[in-house]
Amino acid sequence: MSFYHQIALTKIKGVGPKTARNLLAYCGSVQEILETKASILAKIPGVNSKTATEIAAKNYQEATEKEIAFVEKHQIQVLWITNPDYPTKLRNCEDAPLVLYYKGNADLNNERVVSIVGTRDATNYGRKICDTLIEQLKPLHTTIVSGLAYGIDIAAHKSALLNQIPTVAVLGHGLDRIYPASHRETASNMIYQGGLLTEFASDTKLERQNFPMRNRIIAGMADVTIVIEAAIKGGALITAEIANSYNRDVCAFPGGVDQTYSAGCNYLIKTNRAHLIRDAQDLCYLMNWDLENTKTQTQLSLIPTDLNQDQLHIYHFIKEKKQVTIDKISRFCNWSQSKLAIVLLEMEMNGHITSLPGKVYTL
Protein backbone atom coordinates (compact mmCIF):
# COMPACT_ATOMS: atom_id res chain seq x y z
CA MET A 1 0.00 0.00 0.00
CA SER A 2 1.50 3.30 -1.03
CA PHE A 3 1.99 6.29 1.24
CA TYR A 4 -0.27 8.18 -1.10
CA HIS A 5 -3.41 6.26 -0.16
CA GLN A 6 -2.53 6.16 3.53
CA ILE A 7 -1.99 9.90 3.78
CA ALA A 8 -4.89 10.73 1.46
CA LEU A 9 -7.40 9.11 3.82
CA THR A 10 -6.28 11.45 6.63
CA LYS A 11 -6.80 14.50 4.40
CA ILE A 12 -10.52 13.93 3.92
CA LYS A 13 -12.78 16.17 5.97
CA GLY A 14 -15.10 14.18 8.24
CA VAL A 15 -13.00 11.01 8.26
CA GLY A 16 -11.50 10.44 11.71
CA PRO A 17 -9.90 7.25 13.09
CA LYS A 18 -13.21 5.53 13.95
CA THR A 19 -14.90 6.38 10.63
CA ALA A 20 -11.78 5.31 8.74
CA ARG A 21 -11.72 1.96 10.51
CA ASN A 22 -15.38 1.48 9.69
CA LEU A 23 -14.72 2.24 6.03
CA LEU A 24 -11.79 -0.18 5.98
CA ALA A 25 -13.92 -2.93 7.49
CA TYR A 26 -16.45 -2.61 4.64
CA CYS A 27 -14.15 -1.76 1.72
CA GLY A 28 -11.13 -3.88 2.59
CA SER A 29 -8.39 -1.38 1.69
CA VAL A 30 -7.69 2.34 1.58
CA GLN A 31 -7.39 2.27 -2.20
CA GLU A 32 -10.81 0.66 -2.47
CA ILE A 33 -12.32 3.36 -0.21
CA LEU A 34 -10.94 6.13 -2.42
CA GLU A 35 -12.23 4.46 -5.59
CA THR A 36 -15.74 3.62 -4.37
CA LYS A 37 -18.69 5.74 -5.53
CA ALA A 38 -20.33 8.13 -3.05
CA SER A 39 -23.73 6.40 -3.39
CA ILE A 40 -22.22 3.12 -2.19
CA LEU A 41 -20.12 4.70 0.59
CA ALA A 42 -23.21 6.46 1.97
CA LYS A 43 -24.82 3.07 2.62
CA ILE A 44 -22.07 2.10 5.06
CA PRO A 45 -23.26 2.47 8.68
CA GLY A 46 -21.72 5.54 10.31
CA VAL A 47 -20.90 7.24 7.00
CA ASN A 48 -23.23 10.11 6.08
CA SER A 49 -23.82 11.40 2.55
CA LYS A 50 -21.70 14.52 3.16
CA THR A 51 -18.65 12.44 4.10
CA ALA A 52 -19.25 10.04 1.21
CA THR A 53 -19.38 12.95 -1.23
CA GLU A 54 -16.19 14.40 0.25
CA ILE A 55 -14.35 11.11 -0.30
CA ALA A 56 -15.56 10.74 -3.89
CA ALA A 57 -14.71 14.38 -4.74
CA LYS A 58 -10.98 13.65 -4.40
CA ASN A 59 -10.21 17.12 -3.07
CA TYR A 60 -7.37 15.58 -1.06
CA GLN A 61 -4.96 15.09 -3.97
CA GLU A 62 -2.97 18.33 -3.79
CA ALA A 63 -2.60 18.20 0.01
CA THR A 64 -1.54 14.55 -0.16
CA GLU A 65 1.18 15.18 -2.74
CA LYS A 66 2.46 18.14 -0.70
CA GLU A 67 2.68 16.00 2.44
CA ILE A 68 4.52 13.21 0.64
CA ALA A 69 7.08 15.72 -0.62
CA PHE A 70 7.53 17.01 2.95
CA VAL A 71 8.08 13.59 4.58
CA GLU A 72 10.49 12.50 1.87
CA LYS A 73 12.51 15.71 2.12
CA HIS A 74 12.85 15.46 5.91
CA GLN A 75 13.21 11.66 6.06
CA ILE A 76 10.11 11.20 8.22
CA GLN A 77 8.69 7.73 8.74
CA VAL A 78 5.03 7.31 7.86
CA LEU A 79 3.67 4.58 10.13
CA TRP A 80 0.39 3.06 8.94
CA ILE A 81 -1.51 1.27 11.70
CA THR A 82 -0.51 -2.18 10.38
CA ASN A 83 3.18 -1.24 10.11
CA PRO A 84 5.27 -3.39 12.51
CA ASP A 85 6.98 -0.21 13.80
CA TYR A 86 3.63 1.35 14.77
CA PRO A 87 3.24 1.28 18.61
CA THR A 88 1.46 -2.02 19.30
CA LYS A 89 -0.03 -0.88 22.59
CA LEU A 90 -1.58 2.14 20.85
CA ARG A 91 -2.87 0.03 17.97
CA ASN A 92 -5.10 -1.82 20.42
CA CYS A 93 -6.99 1.41 21.29
CA GLU A 94 -10.19 1.87 19.29
CA ASP A 95 -9.48 5.52 18.48
CA ALA A 96 -5.81 5.08 17.58
CA PRO A 97 -4.65 7.21 14.63
CA LEU A 98 -4.39 5.33 11.35
CA VAL A 99 -1.22 7.22 10.44
CA LEU A 100 1.65 8.46 12.60
CA TYR A 101 4.56 10.64 11.47
CA TYR A 102 7.80 9.79 13.24
CA LYS A 103 11.33 11.15 13.25
CA GLY A 104 13.77 9.48 15.60
CA ASN A 105 15.55 6.26 16.48
CA ALA A 106 13.75 4.98 19.60
CA ASP A 107 11.89 1.67 19.49
CA LEU A 108 8.22 2.62 19.85
CA ASN A 109 7.55 -0.99 20.87
CA ASN A 110 10.05 -1.13 23.69
CA GLU A 111 9.08 -3.72 26.31
CA ARG A 112 8.60 -0.99 28.93
CA VAL A 113 7.14 2.38 27.97
CA VAL A 114 6.40 4.93 30.70
CA SER A 115 4.42 8.12 30.07
CA ILE A 116 5.10 11.01 32.44
CA VAL A 117 2.73 13.99 32.58
CA GLY A 118 2.01 16.90 34.86
CA THR A 119 1.41 20.58 35.28
CA ARG A 120 2.99 23.24 33.07
CA ASP A 121 3.75 25.20 36.26
CA ALA A 122 6.02 22.63 37.88
CA THR A 123 7.39 23.39 41.34
CA ASN A 124 10.83 22.44 42.64
CA TYR A 125 9.11 19.53 44.40
CA GLY A 126 7.71 18.23 41.10
CA ARG A 127 10.95 18.64 39.16
CA LYS A 128 12.93 16.89 41.90
CA ILE A 129 10.51 13.94 41.90
CA CYS A 130 10.72 13.77 38.12
CA ASP A 131 14.53 13.77 38.06
CA THR A 132 14.81 11.18 40.84
CA LEU A 133 12.22 8.85 39.31
CA ILE A 134 13.82 8.86 35.86
CA GLU A 135 17.28 8.29 37.32
CA GLN A 136 15.88 5.29 39.22
CA LEU A 137 14.24 3.95 36.04
CA LYS A 138 17.50 3.81 34.08
CA PRO A 139 18.29 0.13 34.93
CA LEU A 140 14.87 -0.89 33.54
CA HIS A 141 15.73 0.20 29.97
CA THR A 142 12.44 2.04 29.61
CA THR A 143 11.33 4.55 27.00
CA ILE A 144 10.01 7.80 28.49
CA VAL A 145 7.07 9.45 26.70
CA SER A 146 5.68 12.94 27.29
CA GLY A 147 4.31 15.95 25.41
CA LEU A 148 7.21 18.48 25.18
CA ALA A 149 5.09 21.06 27.04
CA TYR A 150 6.33 23.43 29.73
CA GLY A 151 6.75 22.10 33.27
CA ILE A 152 6.80 18.38 34.01
CA ASP A 153 6.82 17.33 30.34
CA ILE A 154 10.05 19.09 29.42
CA ALA A 155 11.60 18.15 32.77
CA ALA A 156 10.94 14.48 31.97
CA HIS A 157 12.48 14.76 28.49
CA LYS A 158 15.57 16.60 29.74
CA SER A 159 16.11 14.18 32.61
CA ALA A 160 15.79 11.21 30.25
CA LEU A 161 18.38 12.74 27.91
CA LEU A 162 20.71 13.37 30.85
CA ASN A 163 20.38 9.74 31.96
CA GLN A 164 20.75 8.44 28.38
CA ILE A 165 17.23 7.00 28.34
CA PRO A 166 15.28 7.08 25.04
CA THR A 167 12.52 9.69 25.22
CA VAL A 168 9.70 10.36 22.75
CA ALA A 169 7.69 13.58 22.51
CA VAL A 170 4.13 13.30 21.19
CA LEU A 171 3.28 16.58 19.49
CA GLY A 172 -0.01 18.42 19.05
CA HIS A 173 1.06 19.69 15.62
CA GLY A 174 3.00 18.60 12.56
CA LEU A 175 6.74 18.02 12.32
CA ASP A 176 7.20 21.28 10.43
CA ARG A 177 7.44 23.17 13.73
CA ILE A 178 8.27 22.83 17.41
CA TYR A 179 5.96 24.26 20.07
CA PRO A 180 6.93 25.84 22.33
CA ALA A 181 9.85 27.19 20.30
CA SER A 182 12.03 27.42 23.42
CA HIS A 183 12.13 23.60 23.50
CA ARG A 184 13.60 23.32 20.01
CA GLU A 185 17.09 22.37 21.22
CA THR A 186 15.73 19.60 23.44
CA ALA A 187 13.57 18.33 20.57
CA SER A 188 16.61 18.25 18.27
CA ASN A 189 18.56 16.17 20.79
CA MET A 190 15.64 13.78 21.15
CA ILE A 191 15.79 12.84 17.46
CA TYR A 192 19.13 11.14 18.23
CA GLN A 193 18.07 9.70 21.60
CA GLY A 194 14.37 9.07 21.21
CA GLY A 195 12.10 10.78 18.72
CA LEU A 196 9.25 13.09 17.79
CA LEU A 197 5.85 11.54 17.05
CA THR A 198 2.57 13.02 15.81
CA GLU A 199 -0.63 12.17 13.99
CA PHE A 200 -0.81 15.68 12.53
CA ALA A 201 0.37 16.55 9.04
CA SER A 202 2.84 19.34 8.35
CA ASP A 203 0.21 21.93 7.46
CA THR A 204 -1.83 21.50 10.65
CA LYS A 205 -2.79 24.71 12.44
CA LEU A 206 -1.76 25.02 16.07
CA GLU A 207 -5.19 24.67 17.69
CA ARG A 208 -6.27 24.08 21.27
CA GLN A 209 -8.22 20.88 20.55
CA ASN A 210 -5.13 19.19 19.12
CA PHE A 211 -3.57 18.71 22.54
CA PRO A 212 -6.29 16.53 24.13
CA MET A 213 -6.06 14.44 20.94
CA ARG A 214 -2.31 14.25 21.46
CA ASN A 215 -2.88 13.05 25.03
CA ARG A 216 -4.61 9.85 23.91
CA ILE A 217 -1.42 8.83 22.09
CA ILE A 218 0.67 9.53 25.20
CA ALA A 219 -1.68 7.33 27.23
CA GLY A 220 -2.22 4.67 24.58
CA MET A 221 1.37 3.84 23.70
CA ALA A 222 2.51 3.37 27.32
CA ASP A 223 2.26 0.56 29.84
CA VAL A 224 1.68 3.07 32.62
CA THR A 225 0.99 6.81 32.88
CA ILE A 226 2.57 8.64 35.82
CA VAL A 227 1.20 11.97 37.02
CA ILE A 228 3.85 13.84 38.98
CA GLU A 229 2.15 17.19 39.64
CA ALA A 230 -1.26 18.31 38.42
CA ALA A 231 -3.91 20.84 39.31
CA ILE A 232 -7.52 19.70 39.64
CA LYS A 233 -8.11 20.57 35.97
CA GLY A 234 -5.76 20.28 33.03
CA GLY A 235 -4.18 18.08 30.41
CA ALA A 236 -2.49 15.73 32.87
CA LEU A 237 -5.81 14.65 34.37
CA ILE A 238 -7.27 14.24 30.87
CA THR A 239 -4.38 11.93 30.00
CA ALA A 240 -4.93 9.96 33.21
CA GLU A 241 -8.64 9.55 32.45
CA ILE A 242 -7.85 8.37 28.92
CA ALA A 243 -5.33 5.85 30.26
CA ASN A 244 -7.97 4.54 32.65
CA SER A 245 -10.44 4.20 29.76
CA TYR A 246 -7.82 2.09 27.93
CA ASN A 247 -7.52 -0.09 31.05
CA ARG A 248 -3.89 1.00 31.52
CA ASP A 249 -2.27 1.57 34.88
CA VAL A 250 -2.10 5.12 36.22
CA CYS A 251 0.16 6.23 39.08
CA ALA A 252 0.40 9.53 40.90
CA PHE A 253 2.77 11.10 43.39
CA PRO A 254 0.91 12.58 46.37
CA GLY A 255 1.45 16.16 47.48
CA GLY A 256 0.54 18.50 50.30
CA VAL A 257 -3.18 18.97 50.89
CA ASP A 258 -2.75 22.73 50.55
CA GLN A 259 -0.72 22.63 47.33
CA THR A 260 -2.62 23.67 44.18
CA TYR A 261 -0.42 21.67 41.83
CA SER A 262 -0.81 18.49 43.84
CA ALA A 263 -4.61 18.70 44.06
CA GLY A 264 -5.09 16.72 40.85
CA CYS A 265 -2.75 13.94 41.98
CA ASN A 266 -4.43 13.73 45.37
CA TYR A 267 -7.84 13.60 43.66
CA LEU A 268 -6.77 10.74 41.37
CA ILE A 269 -5.50 8.76 44.36
CA LYS A 270 -8.55 9.54 46.52
CA THR A 271 -10.99 8.42 43.82
CA ASN A 272 -9.02 5.25 43.00
CA ARG A 273 -8.14 6.54 39.54
CA ALA A 274 -4.42 6.23 40.26
CA HIS A 275 -2.10 4.18 42.43
CA LEU A 276 -0.06 6.11 44.97
CA ILE A 277 3.68 5.76 44.36
CA ARG A 278 6.72 7.28 46.04
CA ASP A 279 9.55 6.05 43.84
CA ALA A 280 10.58 3.62 41.09
CA GLN A 281 10.49 0.70 43.50
CA ASP A 282 6.77 1.31 44.14
CA LEU A 283 6.22 1.47 40.39
CA CYS A 284 8.10 -1.78 39.79
CA TYR A 285 6.10 -3.51 42.51
CA LEU A 286 2.84 -2.34 40.95
CA MET A 287 3.87 -3.30 37.39
CA ASN A 288 5.60 -6.52 38.44
CA TRP A 289 8.87 -5.27 36.96
CA ASP A 290 12.01 -6.71 38.53
CA LEU A 291 14.19 -3.72 39.32
CA GLU A 292 16.73 -5.73 41.30
CA ASN A 293 17.57 -8.17 38.50
CA THR A 294 18.24 -5.33 36.08
CA LYS A 295 21.09 -4.01 38.19
CA THR A 296 24.63 -5.11 37.56
CA GLN A 297 26.29 -7.58 39.85
CA THR A 298 28.59 -4.77 41.06
CA GLN A 299 25.64 -2.66 42.11
CA LEU A 300 24.08 -5.58 43.97
CA SER A 301 27.26 -6.33 45.87
CA LEU A 302 27.53 -2.83 47.30
CA ILE A 303 26.64 -2.75 51.00
CA PRO A 304 25.56 0.55 52.59
CA THR A 305 28.26 1.92 54.87
CA ASP A 306 25.87 3.47 57.41
CA LEU A 307 24.47 0.17 58.75
CA ASN A 308 25.12 -0.71 62.40
CA GLN A 309 25.72 -4.31 63.51
CA ASP A 310 22.04 -5.13 64.13
CA GLN A 311 21.00 -3.63 60.79
CA LEU A 312 23.80 -5.43 58.96
CA HIS A 313 22.64 -8.71 60.50
CA ILE A 314 19.15 -8.23 58.99
CA TYR A 315 20.51 -6.79 55.72
CA HIS A 316 22.50 -9.92 54.87
CA PHE A 317 19.55 -12.17 55.74
CA ILE A 318 17.14 -10.26 53.46
CA LYS A 319 19.77 -10.09 50.70
CA GLU A 320 20.09 -13.89 50.78
CA LYS A 321 16.32 -14.53 50.81
CA LYS A 322 15.38 -11.71 48.33
CA GLN A 323 12.00 -11.28 50.05
CA VAL A 324 11.24 -12.39 53.60
CA THR A 325 8.34 -12.11 56.04
CA ILE A 326 8.66 -10.37 59.39
CA ASP A 327 8.01 -13.71 61.13
CA LYS A 328 11.06 -15.28 59.49
CA ILE A 329 13.19 -12.26 60.34
CA SER A 330 12.00 -12.54 63.94
CA ARG A 331 12.93 -16.23 64.15
CA PHE A 332 16.31 -15.54 62.52
CA CYS A 333 17.23 -12.70 64.89
CA ASN A 334 15.55 -14.05 68.01
CA TRP A 335 15.05 -10.50 69.32
CA SER A 336 12.19 -8.95 71.21
CA GLN A 337 9.38 -7.65 69.01
CA SER A 338 10.02 -4.09 70.15
CA LYS A 339 13.72 -4.22 69.20
CA LEU A 340 12.97 -5.82 65.83
CA ALA A 341 10.31 -3.20 65.03
CA ILE A 342 12.72 -0.34 65.82
CA VAL A 343 15.56 -1.79 63.69
CA LEU A 344 13.28 -2.47 60.71
CA LEU A 345 11.74 1.00 60.93
CA GLU A 346 15.18 2.65 61.00
CA MET A 347 16.31 0.64 57.97
CA GLU A 348 13.14 1.47 56.06
CA MET A 349 13.37 5.19 56.86
CA ASN A 350 17.01 5.23 55.68
CA GLY A 351 16.03 3.61 52.39
CA HIS A 352 17.82 0.28 52.93
CA ILE A 353 14.71 -1.92 52.89
CA THR A 354 11.15 -1.66 51.65
CA SER A 355 8.01 -3.00 53.29
CA LEU A 356 5.69 -4.88 50.91
CA PRO A 357 2.07 -5.93 51.51
CA GLY A 358 1.72 -8.88 53.89
CA LYS A 359 4.54 -7.69 56.18
CA VAL A 360 7.17 -8.78 53.66
CA TYR A 361 10.53 -7.01 53.40
CA THR A 362 12.99 -6.70 50.53
CA LEU A 363 16.14 -4.64 49.92
Results as ranks from 00 to 15, higher is better:
residue 190 M to G: 10
residue 186 T to I: 15
residue 255 G to F: 01
residue 235 G to C: 09
residue 254 P to W: 02
residue 176 D to Y: 09
residue 191 I to E: 11
residue 179 Y to P: 03
residue 258 D to E: 12
residue 279 D to C: 05
residue 175 L to P: 13
residue 171 L to M: 14
residue 227 V to K: 05
residue 202 S to M: 11
residue 169 A to Y: 07
residue 219 A to P: 02
residue 210 N to G: 12
residue 220 G to T: 06
residue 251 C to W: 01
residue 196 L to K: 02
residue 190 M to H: 10
residue 216 R to E: 03
residue 201 A to H: 12
residue 266 N to C: 09
residue 180 P to M: 13
residue 255 G to P: 04
residue 226 I to K: 04
residue 246 Y to D: 03
residue 176 D to I: 07
residue 239 T to P: 07
residue 262 S to V: 07
residue 195 G to I: 09
residue 283 L to G: 03
residue 170 V to Y: 03
residue 222 A to L: 07
residue 260 T to R: 10
residue 235 G to L: 01
residue 230 A to I: 08
residue 284 C to N: 04
residue 252 A to C: 08
residue 288 N to D: 11
residue 212 P to F: 07
residue 243 A to K: 05
residue 287 M to H: 00
residue 255 G to C: 08
residue 171 L to Q: 08
residue 181 A to W: 07
residue 173 H to Q: 15
residue 272 N to I: 00
residue 282 D to K: 02
residue 221 M to A: 10
residue 175 L to V: 11
residue 180 P to W: 15
residue 174 G to A: 10
residue 210 N to S: 12
residue 225 T to E: 04
residue 197 L to C: 10
residue 191 I to L: 11
residue 179 Y to T: 06
residue 185 E to F: 11
residue 225 T to M: 08
residue 257 V to C: 13
residue 180 P to Q: 13
residue 169 A to N: 04
residue 258 D to L: 14
residue 246 Y to C: 03
residue 235 G to M: 05
residue 261 Y to L: 14
residue 282 D to I: 03
residue 286 L to G: 00
residue 243 A to G: 05
residue 276 L to R: 09
residue 296 T to R: 06
residue 173 H to F: 12
residue 212 P to R: 10
residue 192 Y to H: 15
residue 290 D to A: 04
residue 281 Q to P: 00
residue 251 C to V: 07
residue 292 E to R: 14
residue 252 A to H: 05
residue 270 K to C: 00
residue 237 L to N: 03
residue 265 C to W: 02
residue 261 Y to C: 01
residue 186 T to H: 07
residue 174 G to D: 09
residue 296 T to P: 09
residue 188 S to P: 00
residue 281 Q to A: 06
residue 294 T to M: 14
residue 237 L to V: 08
residue 275 H to K: 13
residue 170 V to H: 05
residue 192 Y to C: 08
residue 215 N to L: 02
residue 187 A to S: 13
residue 231 A to H: 08
residue 232 I to C: 00
residue 181 A to Y: 14
residue 183 H to S: 14
residue 271 T to A: 01
residue 168 V to A: 06
residue 290 D to T: 05
residue 184 R to A: 15
residue 181 A to H: 15
residue 211 F to I: 11
residue 254 P to F: 02
residue 267 Y to I: 00
residue 289 W to F: 09
residue 185 E to Y: 14
residue 193 Q to D: 08
residue 208 R to H: 14
residue 171 L to A: 10
residue 217 I to G: 02
residue 203 D to F: 14
residue 191 I to Q: 11
residue 203 D to E: 13
residue 199 E to G: 02
residue 170 V to S: 06
residue 200 F to D: 01
residue 269 I to Y: 03
residue 258 D to M: 13
residue 178 I to Y: 07
residue 172 G to W: 01
residue 194 G to M: 02
residue 292 E to I: 08
residue 226 I to H: 06
residue 291 L to K: 13
residue 279 D to V: 05
residue 209 Q to M: 11
residue 196 L to Q: 04
residue 173 H to Y: 15
residue 285 Y to R: 12
residue 185 E to N: 13
residue 176 D to R: 08
residue 191 I to V: 15
residue 176 D to F: 07
residue 184 R to M: 12
residue 209 Q to G: 01
residue 278 R to D: 03
residue 236 A to K: 03
residue 281 Q to G: 00
residue 247 N to D: 10
residue 207 E to S: 14
residue 274 A to T: 05
residue 188 S to R: 15
residue 206 L to T: 15
residue 296 T to I: 04
residue 288 N to V: 00
residue 216 R to N: 03
residue 295 K to W: 13
residue 241 E to V: 00
residue 276 L to Y: 01
